[in-house]
Design a protein around this nucleic acid. Structure first.
Lengths: 204, 204
DNA sequence: AGATTGAACGATTTGTTGATTATTCAGAAA
DNA sequence: TTTCTGAATAATCAACAAATCGTTCAATCT
Protein backbone atom coordinates (compact mmCIF):
# COMPACT_ATOMS: atom_id res chain seq x y z
CA UNK A 1 0.00 0.00 0.00
CA UNK A 2 2.89 2.35 0.83
CA UNK A 3 4.31 1.14 -2.48
CA UNK A 4 1.11 2.07 -4.22
CA UNK A 5 1.11 5.53 -2.67
CA UNK A 6 4.66 6.22 -3.77
CA UNK A 7 3.76 5.26 -7.32
CA UNK A 8 0.76 7.58 -7.18
CA UNK A 9 3.10 10.33 -6.06
CA UNK A 10 5.50 9.53 -8.89
CA UNK A 11 2.66 9.81 -11.38
CA UNK A 12 1.58 13.14 -9.95
CA UNK A 13 5.13 14.49 -10.16
CA UNK A 14 5.59 13.33 -13.74
CA UNK A 15 2.25 14.80 -14.76
CA UNK A 16 2.96 18.05 -12.96
CA UNK A 17 6.17 18.48 -14.97
CA UNK A 18 4.39 17.76 -18.26
CA UNK A 19 1.33 19.88 -17.48
CA UNK A 20 3.34 22.90 -16.44
CA UNK A 21 5.67 22.64 -19.43
CA UNK A 22 3.29 21.81 -22.25
CA UNK A 23 -0.15 22.27 -20.75
CA UNK A 24 -2.86 19.84 -19.75
CA UNK A 25 -4.35 19.36 -23.21
CA UNK A 26 -0.99 18.82 -24.93
CA UNK A 27 0.12 16.18 -22.48
CA UNK A 28 -0.88 12.62 -23.29
CA UNK A 29 -1.38 9.80 -20.86
CA UNK A 30 1.13 7.79 -22.89
CA UNK A 31 3.79 10.41 -22.18
CA UNK A 32 3.09 10.44 -18.46
CA UNK A 33 3.17 6.65 -18.48
CA UNK A 34 6.52 6.61 -20.27
CA UNK A 35 7.92 9.10 -17.75
CA UNK A 36 6.91 6.64 -15.07
CA UNK A 37 8.30 3.66 -16.98
CA UNK A 38 4.96 2.00 -17.32
CA UNK A 39 2.30 1.38 -19.93
CA UNK A 40 -0.60 3.76 -20.42
CA UNK A 41 -3.07 1.18 -19.23
CA UNK A 42 -1.26 0.75 -15.96
CA UNK A 43 -1.87 4.39 -15.02
CA UNK A 44 -5.52 3.52 -14.59
CA UNK A 45 -4.73 1.20 -11.70
CA UNK A 46 -3.64 4.30 -9.79
CA UNK A 47 -5.94 7.04 -11.04
CA UNK A 48 -9.37 6.71 -12.63
CA UNK A 49 -8.44 9.16 -15.38
CA UNK A 50 -6.43 12.09 -16.59
CA UNK A 51 -8.62 14.66 -14.86
CA UNK A 52 -8.10 12.91 -11.54
CA UNK A 53 -4.37 13.37 -11.87
CA UNK A 54 -4.92 17.07 -12.50
CA UNK A 55 -7.14 17.14 -9.44
CA UNK A 56 -4.46 15.50 -7.35
CA UNK A 57 -2.00 18.16 -8.44
CA UNK A 58 -4.47 20.93 -7.66
CA UNK A 59 -5.21 19.42 -4.27
CA UNK A 60 -1.54 19.17 -3.36
CA UNK A 61 -1.15 22.84 -4.22
CA UNK A 62 -4.35 23.96 -2.56
CA UNK A 63 -3.50 22.12 0.64
CA UNK A 64 -0.38 24.23 1.01
CA UNK A 65 -2.48 27.32 0.47
CA UNK A 66 -4.94 26.14 3.12
CA UNK A 67 -2.15 25.67 5.62
CA UNK A 68 -0.94 29.16 4.95
CA UNK A 69 -4.48 30.42 5.46
CA UNK A 70 -4.76 28.57 8.74
CA UNK A 71 -1.57 30.25 9.93
CA UNK A 72 -3.03 33.65 9.10
CA UNK A 73 -6.23 32.70 10.88
CA UNK A 74 -4.51 32.09 14.18
CA UNK A 75 -2.02 34.97 13.95
CA UNK A 76 -1.74 36.18 17.52
CA UNK A 77 -1.82 39.86 18.36
CA UNK A 78 -4.31 40.63 15.69
CA UNK A 79 -7.99 41.50 15.68
CA UNK A 80 -10.24 38.89 14.19
CA UNK A 81 -11.27 41.50 11.68
CA UNK A 82 -7.65 42.03 10.73
CA UNK A 83 -7.22 38.30 10.31
CA UNK A 84 -10.32 38.08 8.17
CA UNK A 85 -8.88 40.88 6.09
CA UNK A 86 -5.54 39.13 5.71
CA UNK A 87 -7.25 35.86 4.83
CA UNK A 88 -9.39 37.28 2.07
CA UNK A 89 -6.52 39.32 0.68
CA UNK A 90 -4.23 36.33 0.66
CA UNK A 91 -6.84 34.37 -1.26
CA UNK A 92 -7.16 37.14 -3.84
CA UNK A 93 -3.44 37.71 -4.28
CA UNK A 94 -2.59 34.05 -4.51
CA UNK A 95 -5.10 33.14 -7.17
CA UNK A 96 -4.56 36.36 -9.09
CA UNK A 97 -0.82 36.02 -9.40
CA UNK A 98 -1.01 32.28 -9.97
CA UNK A 99 -3.44 32.61 -12.84
CA UNK A 100 -1.63 35.67 -14.15
CA UNK A 101 1.90 34.28 -14.34
CA UNK A 102 1.14 30.64 -15.00
CA UNK A 103 -1.03 30.20 -18.09
CA UNK A 104 -0.77 26.44 -17.57
CA UNK A 105 -2.27 26.78 -14.12
CA UNK A 106 -5.00 28.90 -15.64
CA UNK A 107 -5.74 26.18 -18.19
CA UNK A 108 -5.96 23.54 -15.48
CA UNK A 109 -8.22 25.72 -13.35
CA UNK A 110 -10.52 26.16 -16.33
CA UNK A 111 -10.65 22.46 -17.13
CA UNK A 112 -11.26 21.38 -13.55
CA UNK A 113 -13.92 23.99 -12.88
CA UNK A 114 -15.66 23.01 -16.12
CA UNK A 115 -15.50 19.22 -15.84
CA UNK A 116 -15.63 18.95 -12.05
CA UNK A 117 -17.76 21.73 -10.60
CA UNK A 118 -17.93 19.81 -7.30
CA UNK A 119 -14.25 20.46 -6.87
CA UNK A 120 -14.80 24.19 -6.46
CA UNK A 121 -17.41 23.36 -3.83
CA UNK A 122 -14.90 21.27 -1.95
CA UNK A 123 -12.42 24.13 -1.95
CA UNK A 124 -15.06 26.53 -0.68
CA UNK A 125 -16.02 24.11 2.06
CA UNK A 126 -12.41 23.72 3.20
CA UNK A 127 -11.92 27.44 3.34
CA UNK A 128 -15.22 27.86 5.12
CA UNK A 129 -13.97 25.69 7.97
CA UNK A 130 -11.29 28.30 8.58
CA UNK A 131 -13.83 31.08 8.45
CA UNK A 132 -16.00 29.32 11.00
CA UNK A 133 -13.01 28.92 13.29
CA UNK A 134 -12.44 32.62 12.92
CA UNK A 135 -16.02 33.45 13.82
CA UNK A 136 -15.75 31.22 16.88
CA UNK A 137 -12.61 33.06 17.89
CA UNK A 138 -14.37 36.39 17.39
CA UNK A 139 -17.09 35.24 19.77
CA UNK A 140 -14.56 34.06 22.34
CA UNK A 141 -12.80 37.41 22.19
CA UNK A 142 -16.07 39.28 22.28
CA UNK A 143 -15.33 41.08 19.03
CA UNK A 144 -18.55 40.05 17.37
CA UNK A 145 -20.94 37.16 17.26
CA UNK A 146 -23.49 35.55 14.97
CA UNK A 147 -26.15 32.97 15.66
CA UNK A 148 -25.31 30.63 12.77
CA UNK A 149 -21.60 30.69 12.03
CA UNK A 150 -21.66 28.14 9.22
CA UNK A 151 -24.27 30.21 7.44
CA UNK A 152 -22.47 33.47 8.11
CA UNK A 153 -19.28 32.03 6.68
CA UNK A 154 -21.20 30.98 3.60
CA UNK A 155 -22.48 34.52 3.19
CA UNK A 156 -19.01 35.99 3.53
CA UNK A 157 -17.94 33.68 0.75
CA UNK A 158 -20.93 34.63 -1.39
CA UNK A 159 -20.18 38.31 -0.96
CA UNK A 160 -16.52 37.84 -1.92
CA UNK A 161 -17.17 35.56 -4.90
CA UNK A 162 -15.91 38.18 -7.30
CA UNK A 163 -12.44 37.98 -5.79
CA UNK A 164 -12.09 34.23 -5.81
CA UNK A 165 -11.30 33.62 -9.49
CA UNK A 166 -10.66 37.24 -10.37
CA UNK A 167 -9.77 36.89 -14.03
CA UNK A 168 -12.66 34.58 -14.79
CA UNK A 169 -15.25 37.16 -13.77
CA UNK A 170 -13.81 40.53 -14.55
CA UNK A 171 -10.85 42.12 -16.23
CA UNK A 172 -9.92 44.34 -13.34
CA UNK A 173 -6.27 44.78 -12.46
CA UNK A 174 -5.00 43.58 -9.11
CA UNK A 175 -4.88 47.08 -7.58
CA UNK A 176 -8.49 47.74 -8.53
CA UNK A 177 -9.52 44.36 -7.17
CA UNK A 178 -7.69 45.09 -3.94
CA UNK A 179 -9.39 48.43 -3.60
CA UNK A 180 -12.77 46.79 -4.09
CA UNK A 181 -12.06 43.94 -1.72
CA UNK A 182 -10.97 46.46 0.88
CA UNK A 183 -14.31 48.22 0.52
CA UNK A 184 -16.35 45.06 0.60
CA UNK A 185 -14.63 43.81 3.72
CA UNK A 186 -15.27 47.11 5.45
CA UNK A 187 -18.91 46.90 4.47
CA UNK A 188 -19.15 43.30 5.66
CA UNK A 189 -17.66 44.10 9.00
CA UNK A 190 -19.37 47.37 9.78
CA UNK A 191 -22.50 47.03 7.72
CA UNK A 192 -24.41 49.85 6.12
CA UNK A 193 -26.23 50.93 9.23
CA UNK A 194 -24.42 49.98 12.41
CA UNK A 195 -25.85 53.08 14.03
CA UNK A 196 -29.42 52.09 13.43
CA UNK A 197 -28.73 48.62 14.71
CA UNK A 198 -27.00 50.03 17.77
CA UNK A 199 -29.98 52.26 18.41
CA UNK A 200 -32.35 49.36 18.07
CA UNK A 201 -30.25 47.33 20.49
CA UNK A 202 -30.12 50.19 22.91
CA UNK A 203 -33.90 50.61 22.74
CA UNK A 204 -34.48 46.91 23.45
CA UNK B 1 -34.99 62.57 -38.43
CA UNK B 2 -38.25 61.31 -36.91
CA UNK B 3 -38.42 59.21 -40.06
CA UNK B 4 -34.96 57.83 -39.35
CA UNK B 5 -35.89 56.98 -35.79
CA UNK B 6 -39.00 55.11 -36.84
CA UNK B 7 -36.93 53.04 -39.26
CA UNK B 8 -34.44 52.30 -36.51
CA UNK B 9 -37.32 51.12 -34.38
CA UNK B 10 -38.64 48.98 -37.24
CA UNK B 11 -35.24 47.34 -37.57
CA UNK B 12 -35.08 46.65 -33.86
CA UNK B 13 -38.53 45.09 -33.92
CA UNK B 14 -37.75 42.89 -36.92
CA UNK B 15 -34.47 41.78 -35.36
CA UNK B 16 -36.11 41.10 -32.02
CA UNK B 17 -38.57 38.73 -33.68
CA UNK B 18 -35.81 36.89 -35.53
CA UNK B 19 -33.44 36.75 -32.57
CA UNK B 20 -36.06 35.43 -30.19
CA UNK B 21 -37.31 32.82 -32.69
CA UNK B 22 -34.09 31.52 -34.18
CA UNK B 23 -31.38 33.02 -32.01
CA UNK B 24 -28.79 35.71 -32.60
CA UNK B 25 -26.27 33.53 -34.43
CA UNK B 26 -28.83 31.94 -36.74
CA UNK B 27 -30.28 35.26 -37.83
CA UNK B 28 -28.61 36.95 -40.78
CA UNK B 29 -28.50 40.63 -41.54
CA UNK B 30 -29.99 39.81 -44.96
CA UNK B 31 -33.07 38.34 -43.27
CA UNK B 32 -33.54 41.35 -41.02
CA UNK B 33 -33.12 43.58 -44.06
CA UNK B 34 -35.73 41.65 -46.03
CA UNK B 35 -38.15 41.87 -43.11
CA UNK B 36 -37.71 45.63 -43.29
CA UNK B 37 -38.04 45.68 -47.07
CA UNK B 38 -34.56 46.97 -47.61
CA UNK B 39 -31.18 45.75 -48.73
CA UNK B 40 -28.58 44.43 -46.28
CA UNK B 41 -26.28 47.33 -46.98
CA UNK B 42 -28.94 49.84 -46.07
CA UNK B 43 -29.13 48.51 -42.53
CA UNK B 44 -25.73 49.99 -41.92
CA UNK B 45 -27.05 53.50 -42.39
CA UNK B 46 -29.07 52.94 -39.24
CA UNK B 47 -26.86 50.72 -37.11
CA UNK B 48 -23.10 50.25 -37.25
CA UNK B 49 -23.44 46.47 -37.08
CA UNK B 50 -25.36 43.42 -36.00
CA UNK B 51 -24.16 43.61 -32.42
CA UNK B 52 -25.42 47.15 -32.13
CA UNK B 53 -28.91 46.00 -33.02
CA UNK B 54 -28.68 43.39 -30.30
CA UNK B 55 -27.52 46.11 -27.91
CA UNK B 56 -30.47 48.29 -28.86
CA UNK B 57 -32.83 45.42 -28.05
CA UNK B 58 -31.10 44.81 -24.75
CA UNK B 59 -31.21 48.48 -23.89
CA UNK B 60 -34.92 48.75 -24.64
CA UNK B 61 -35.52 45.82 -22.34
CA UNK B 62 -33.15 46.98 -19.63
CA UNK B 63 -34.65 50.46 -19.59
CA UNK B 64 -38.01 49.00 -18.62
CA UNK B 65 -36.29 47.07 -15.89
CA UNK B 66 -34.57 50.23 -14.67
CA UNK B 67 -37.88 52.06 -14.49
CA UNK B 68 -39.32 49.24 -12.44
CA UNK B 69 -36.31 49.43 -10.16
CA UNK B 70 -36.72 53.17 -9.76
CA UNK B 71 -40.33 52.62 -8.71
CA UNK B 72 -39.19 50.16 -6.07
CA UNK B 73 -36.55 52.61 -4.91
CA UNK B 74 -39.06 55.32 -4.10
CA UNK B 75 -41.74 53.04 -2.68
CA UNK B 76 -43.27 55.07 0.13
CA UNK B 77 -43.98 53.54 3.50
CA UNK B 78 -40.91 51.36 3.38
CA UNK B 79 -37.57 51.38 5.12
CA UNK B 80 -34.64 52.13 2.88
CA UNK B 81 -33.32 48.75 3.90
CA UNK B 82 -36.53 47.14 2.75
CA UNK B 83 -36.27 48.96 -0.55
CA UNK B 84 -32.68 47.88 -0.99
CA UNK B 85 -33.83 44.35 -0.32
CA UNK B 86 -36.62 44.60 -2.89
CA UNK B 87 -34.30 46.11 -5.44
CA UNK B 88 -31.67 43.41 -5.21
CA UNK B 89 -34.27 40.67 -5.18
CA UNK B 90 -36.00 42.11 -8.21
CA UNK B 91 -32.68 42.14 -10.03
CA UNK B 92 -32.02 38.51 -9.16
CA UNK B 93 -35.48 37.25 -10.03
CA UNK B 94 -35.71 39.14 -13.29
CA UNK B 95 -32.40 37.98 -14.69
CA UNK B 96 -32.81 34.46 -13.38
CA UNK B 97 -36.20 33.84 -14.92
CA UNK B 98 -35.29 35.66 -18.10
CA UNK B 99 -32.19 33.58 -18.70
CA UNK B 100 -33.94 30.43 -17.51
CA UNK B 101 -37.02 30.55 -19.75
CA UNK B 102 -35.53 32.32 -22.74
CA UNK B 103 -32.49 30.50 -24.08
CA UNK B 104 -32.33 33.11 -26.86
CA UNK B 105 -32.02 35.86 -24.28
CA UNK B 106 -29.28 33.84 -22.63
CA UNK B 107 -27.44 33.60 -25.94
CA UNK B 108 -27.69 37.33 -26.49
CA UNK B 109 -26.51 38.09 -22.98
CA UNK B 110 -23.50 35.85 -23.58
CA UNK B 111 -22.62 37.46 -26.89
CA UNK B 112 -22.97 41.01 -25.63
CA UNK B 113 -21.02 40.41 -22.46
CA UNK B 114 -18.28 38.73 -24.48
CA UNK B 115 -17.99 41.19 -27.37
CA UNK B 116 -18.97 44.35 -25.51
CA UNK B 117 -17.78 44.15 -21.90
CA UNK B 118 -18.34 47.92 -21.58
CA UNK B 119 -22.04 47.28 -21.89
CA UNK B 120 -22.16 45.43 -18.59
CA UNK B 121 -20.34 48.39 -17.05
CA UNK B 122 -22.99 50.73 -18.39
CA UNK B 123 -25.74 48.62 -16.84
CA UNK B 124 -23.94 48.57 -13.52
CA UNK B 125 -23.50 52.32 -13.65
CA UNK B 126 -27.20 52.90 -14.38
CA UNK B 127 -28.23 50.70 -11.52
CA UNK B 128 -25.69 52.35 -9.29
CA UNK B 129 -27.39 55.69 -9.79
CA UNK B 130 -30.48 54.21 -8.17
CA UNK B 131 -28.43 52.82 -5.32
CA UNK B 132 -26.86 56.21 -4.69
CA UNK B 133 -30.31 57.81 -4.62
CA UNK B 134 -31.27 55.22 -2.09
CA UNK B 135 -28.26 55.94 0.08
CA UNK B 136 -29.09 59.65 -0.07
CA UNK B 137 -32.62 58.87 1.01
CA UNK B 138 -31.29 56.77 3.87
CA UNK B 139 -29.25 59.71 5.06
CA UNK B 140 -32.22 62.08 4.80
CA UNK B 141 -34.31 59.69 6.82
CA UNK B 142 -31.52 59.13 9.29
CA UNK B 143 -31.54 55.39 8.73
CA UNK B 144 -27.88 55.16 7.94
CA UNK B 145 -25.15 57.17 6.28
CA UNK B 146 -21.85 56.71 4.52
CA UNK B 147 -19.16 59.19 3.63
CA UNK B 148 -18.77 58.20 -0.01
CA UNK B 149 -22.06 57.02 -1.45
CA UNK B 150 -20.81 56.34 -4.96
CA UNK B 151 -18.13 54.10 -3.56
CA UNK B 152 -20.48 52.41 -1.15
CA UNK B 153 -22.90 51.66 -3.99
CA UNK B 154 -20.02 50.16 -5.94
CA UNK B 155 -19.20 47.90 -3.00
CA UNK B 156 -22.80 46.78 -2.65
CA UNK B 157 -22.67 45.80 -6.29
CA UNK B 158 -19.36 44.00 -5.87
CA UNK B 159 -20.73 42.01 -2.94
CA UNK B 160 -23.84 40.99 -4.88
CA UNK B 161 -22.05 40.12 -8.12
CA UNK B 162 -22.92 36.49 -7.72
CA UNK B 163 -26.61 37.27 -8.03
CA UNK B 164 -26.38 39.48 -11.09
CA UNK B 165 -25.91 36.81 -13.77
CA UNK B 166 -26.81 33.86 -11.58
CA UNK B 167 -26.48 31.06 -14.11
CA UNK B 168 -23.14 32.31 -15.39
CA UNK B 169 -21.48 31.99 -12.01
CA UNK B 170 -23.10 29.05 -10.34
CA UNK B 171 -25.62 26.35 -10.95
CA UNK B 172 -27.70 27.13 -7.89
CA UNK B 173 -31.47 27.03 -8.12
CA UNK B 174 -33.49 30.18 -7.61
CA UNK B 175 -34.57 29.26 -4.05
CA UNK B 176 -30.98 28.67 -3.00
CA UNK B 177 -29.89 31.92 -4.61
CA UNK B 178 -32.68 33.76 -2.82
CA UNK B 179 -31.66 32.28 0.49
CA UNK B 180 -28.08 33.38 -0.10
CA UNK B 181 -29.02 36.85 -1.25
CA UNK B 182 -31.17 37.23 1.83
CA UNK B 183 -28.18 36.38 3.97
CA UNK B 184 -25.79 38.64 2.11
CA UNK B 185 -28.16 41.60 2.34
CA UNK B 186 -28.53 41.07 6.05
CA UNK B 187 -24.79 40.98 6.40
CA UNK B 188 -24.36 44.10 4.30
CA UNK B 189 -26.88 46.02 6.33
CA UNK B 190 -25.97 44.92 9.80
CA UNK B 191 -22.36 43.98 9.31
CA UNK B 192 -20.51 41.31 11.19
CA UNK B 193 -19.88 43.37 14.26
CA UNK B 194 -22.35 46.17 14.74
CA UNK B 195 -21.95 45.78 18.47
CA UNK B 196 -18.26 46.44 18.41
CA UNK B 197 -18.76 49.45 16.18
CA UNK B 198 -21.49 50.74 18.44
CA UNK B 199 -19.21 50.34 21.43
CA UNK B 200 -16.42 52.16 19.65
CA UNK B 201 -18.79 54.96 18.78
CA UNK B 202 -20.02 55.15 22.33
CA UNK B 203 -16.49 55.32 23.66
CA UNK B 204 -15.57 58.17 21.30
C1' DA C 1 -27.80 66.19 -53.98
C1' DG C 2 -28.95 62.11 -50.81
C1' DA C 3 -30.83 57.48 -50.41
C1' DT C 4 -30.50 52.79 -51.69
C1' DT C 5 -28.84 48.78 -53.81
C1' DG C 6 -26.40 44.40 -54.40
C1' DA C 7 -22.17 42.48 -55.95
C1' DA C 8 -17.57 41.86 -53.97
C1' DC C 9 -14.42 40.95 -50.03
C1' DG C 10 -12.59 39.06 -46.01
C1' DA C 11 -13.63 36.93 -41.90
C1' DT C 12 -15.98 33.40 -39.67
C1' DT C 13 -18.47 29.14 -39.58
C1' DT C 14 -19.58 24.54 -41.18
C1' DG C 15 -18.80 20.10 -42.80
C1' DT C 16 -15.73 16.44 -43.63
C1' DT C 17 -11.77 13.70 -43.30
C1' DG C 18 -7.97 11.61 -41.01
C1' DA C 19 -5.19 11.39 -37.07
C1' DT C 20 -4.67 11.47 -31.98
C1' DT C 21 -5.81 10.24 -27.66
C1' DA C 22 -8.19 8.61 -23.32
C1' DT C 23 -9.75 4.52 -21.80
C1' DT C 24 -10.62 -0.51 -21.75
C1' DC C 25 -9.62 -5.26 -21.48
C1' DA C 26 -8.04 -9.82 -23.05
C1' DG C 27 -4.19 -11.89 -22.32
C1' DA C 28 1.02 -12.13 -21.09
C1' DA C 29 4.35 -11.85 -17.39
C1' DA C 30 5.65 -12.22 -12.53
C1' DT D 1 -3.18 -15.00 -8.20
C1' DT D 2 -1.82 -10.41 -8.93
C1' DT D 3 0.50 -7.08 -11.83
C1' DC D 4 1.16 -5.24 -15.94
C1' DT D 5 1.02 -4.73 -21.03
C1' DG D 6 -0.30 -3.00 -25.51
C1' DA D 7 -3.49 -3.58 -29.16
C1' DA D 8 -8.50 -2.38 -29.88
C1' DT D 9 -12.17 1.07 -29.39
C1' DA D 10 -14.66 5.04 -29.23
C1' DA D 11 -14.40 9.74 -28.50
C1' DT D 12 -12.20 13.99 -29.44
C1' DC D 13 -9.35 17.01 -32.03
C1' DA D 14 -6.87 19.17 -36.12
C1' DA D 15 -6.79 20.52 -40.60
C1' DC D 16 -8.54 21.72 -44.71
C1' DA D 17 -12.34 23.03 -48.16
C1' DA D 18 -16.60 24.93 -49.05
C1' DA D 19 -20.12 27.75 -47.83
C1' DT D 20 -22.09 31.44 -45.31
C1' DC D 21 -22.36 35.81 -43.46
C1' DG D 22 -21.19 40.58 -41.82
C1' DT D 23 -19.64 44.54 -43.84
C1' DT D 24 -18.18 47.77 -47.52
C1' DC D 25 -18.60 50.59 -51.49
C1' DA D 26 -18.97 51.75 -56.42
C1' DA D 27 -22.86 52.18 -59.09
C1' DT D 28 -27.88 53.16 -59.51
C1' DC D 29 -32.00 55.28 -58.49
C1' DT D 30 -35.13 59.23 -56.76
Amino acid sequence: MAEKDSIREQIVQAAKKRFSHFGYAKTTMAEVATDCCMSPGNLYRFYPGKLDIAEAIATEDYSQHLEHMRKLAIAPGKDVRERLHDLLFEELRRTYTKLECHPRAFEMALVISRERPEYANWMLAEERKILVELLDEAERRGEFTSDNKEFTAEMVQAATMKFRYPQLWSKLTLPKLERELEGVIKLLINGLCPHARARRDAAA
